[in-house]
Amino acid sequence: MTGSERGRRGDLFSPWCPTRELLDRIGTKWTSMAVKALAEAAPAEVRFAELRRRMPGVSQKMLSVTLRSMVRDGLVERRVEPTVPPAVHYRLTGLGLSLEGPLSALRDWAETHMAEIERHHLPAEDTPAQAGPRAAPEPPAPAGT
């Protein structure tokens, strides 16, 4: 990488900037969880099956796709032992470790504010601002009236 490439900075507001695609990749819940799980193990490696256990809810395919993308972006190193079946190990690169801080701050913000965000999802009549008892719904009219 040349000095000018290293110093080049993206512009999120430019429709042609690859920063948008990068944010789409690193902004997923699976990438955030993988970075956290791998950072907790750093500098040690984590085998695929162990990483999957540390990420409840992730499917084998989704974890594979996520890790492949992270390897391609230079965030993760992949090492394969030539055993039967092959043992595949992953660990964060320096670049991947540098992503842990910002993602950690975002995860912390989300966990701290989740209840408040969920309150905003309530229908208007269920919000705390509508204090006081609600009127009971009227019973249905008898049939044939």
Results as ranks from 00 to 15, higher is better:
2 T>D: 14
3 G>C: 07
3 G>E: 14
5 E>L: 05
6 R>M: 07
6 R>H: 05
6 R>N: 06
8 R>W: 03
8 R>V: 01
9 R>C: 08
9 R>Q: 11
11 D>H: 03
11 D>V: 00
14 S>W: 00
19 T>P: 00
20 R>K: 09
21 E>Q: 10
21 E>H: 07
22 L>G: 05
22 L>S: 05
23 L>Y: 08
26 I>H: 04
26 I>T: 09
26 I>L: 14
27 G>A: 04
28 T>Y: 08
28 T>L: 05
28 T>V: 07
28 T>M: 10
29 K>P: 10
29 K>L: 13
29 K>N: 13
30 W>R: 12
31 T>L: 08
32 S>P: 00
35 V>S: 13
36 K>N: 09
36 K>R: 12
36 K>S: 12
37 A>W: 00
38 L>N: 03
38 L>A: 12
39 A>Y: 10
40 E>V: 02
40 E>L: 14
41 A>Y: 02
41 A>F: 05
41 A>W: 01
42 A>F: 14
43 P>W: 03
45 E>S: 14
46 V>E: 11
48 F>R: 14
49 A>T: 10
49 A>C: 06
51 L>F: 01
51 L>K: 02
52 R>N: 05
53 R>D: 15
53 R>F: 06
54 R>P: 04
55 M>Q: 04
57 G>H: 05
57 G>C: 04
58 V>P: 03
58 V>L: 11
59 S>K: 06
60 Q>L: 10
63 L>I: 06
64 S>I: 01
64 S>A: 12
69 S>I: 03
70 M>K: 11
70 M>T: 07
71 V>W: 01
72 R>G: 07
73 D>M: 10
74 G>E: 05
74 G>Y: 00
75 L>R: 04
75 L>H: 05
76 V>W: 00
77 E>R: 09
78 R>A: 08
78 R>G: 05
79 R>W: 06
79 R>E: 12
80 V>Q: 12
80 V>F: 00
81 E>A: 13
82 P>M: 13
82 P>N: 15
83 T>R: 11
86 P>F: 11
87 A>N: 05
90 Y>I: 01
90 Y>D: 08
91 R>D: 06
91 R>P: 08
92 L>Y: 02
94 G>I: 06
94 G>V: 08
95 L>E: 15
95 L>C: 13
96 G>L: 04
96 G>H: 03
97 L>C: 10
98 S>T: 11
99 L>R: 08
99 L>H: 11
99 L>I: 04
99 L>P: 01
102 P>H: 08
104 S>E: 01
105 A>W: 01
105 A>M: 07
106 L>I: 08
107 R>M: 08
107 R>Q: 13
107 R>N: 12
108 D>H: 13
110 A>F: 06
111 E>M: 04
112 T>K: 15
113 H>Y: 14
114 M>L: 15
115 A>T: 11
117 I>D: 07
117 I>K: 09
119 R>G: 11
119 R>Y: 03
120 H>T: 07
122 L>C: 09
122 L>P: 03
124 A>L: 11
125 E>M: 11
125 E>I: 05
127 T>Y: 00
130 Q>W: 01
130 Q>T: 05
131 A>T: 03
132 G>W: 00
133 P>F: 04
134 R>P: 00
134 R>C: 03
135 A>E: 15
136 A>M: 13
138 E>L: 15
139 P>H: 14
139 P>N: 13
140 P>A: 14
140 P>V: 06
141 A>K: 12
141 A>S: 14
142 P>V: 10
142 P>C: 13
142 P>H: 12
